[in-house]
């Protein structure tokens, strides 16, 4: 069996080995790099999608939370306002009621006073007329004489004046 010299250059062998390297480049590209790169890209895009989805959902959750907080704060404020308003209204109403009551009471008292005064007047009137009648009766009975009506009237008037004076 023949052997080459330890260093011998052959044109065709060089060409063949050059083509061999090109072939191995094609093999590497087609059978190793392309499928692996494809799978890695797919995974990368999936991971990106998952991350972006997670980001989105987190954002929306945050936004919802913020909205809820806002709403809650609004509701609390509203409740506060309502309570305050109610208290104010109640206060107002109470005041009004008290004022009305006072007014009514005053009214009633005034009325009562007026009535009392009226009744007093009426009573005085009644008493006066009764007394005058009584006096006339008494006088006619006691004196038993004809008394001049004119004198009598003056006498009664003077009497009533003395009686009716409240002081």
């Amino acid at each position: 069996m023949q052997s080459l010299d330890i260093i011998s250059v052959n044109f065709w062998q060089i060409i063949i080995s050059l083509v061999n390297l090109l072939i191995i480049y094609r093999i590497m590209k087609k059978f190793l790099f392309k499928p692996v790169q494809k799978v890695m890209d797919t995974r990368q895009s999936q991971v990106d999608r998952i991350f972006s989805e997670a980001d989105d959902s987190r954002d929306s959750a945050n936004q919802m939370k913020r909205e809820y907080e806002q709403k809650l704060a609004g509701a609390r404020q509203e409740a506060d306002t309502m309570i305050k308003t109610a208290a104010q209204t109640a206060q107002l109403r109470g005041d009004q009621i008290v004022a009305e009551a006072k007014e009514q009471a005053a009214h009633a008292r005034q009325k009562a006073e007026r009535e009392i005064a009226q009744q007093k007047q009426q009573m005085l009137q009644d008493v006066r007329s009764e007394i005058s009648e009584l006096a006339v009766d008494i006088a006619s009975k006691v004196v038993e004489r004809e008394i001049n009506q004119k004198d009598y009237d003056g006498f009664v008037d003077e009497f009533i004046q003395n009686v009716g004076d409240p002081s």
Binding site: M1, S3, L4, D5, I6, N10, F11, W12, Q13
Partner: peptide, 22 residues
């Protein structure tokens, strides 16, 4: 010595030996 020559193919410029290295 270098690679063994299994057989040689005649080629235009230079004969092509198919060696163990190839």
């Amino acid at each position: 010595s270098g690679a063994q020559i299994y057989f040689t193919i005649p080629m235009p410029i230079q004969d092509l030996p198919i060696t163990a290295a190839q």
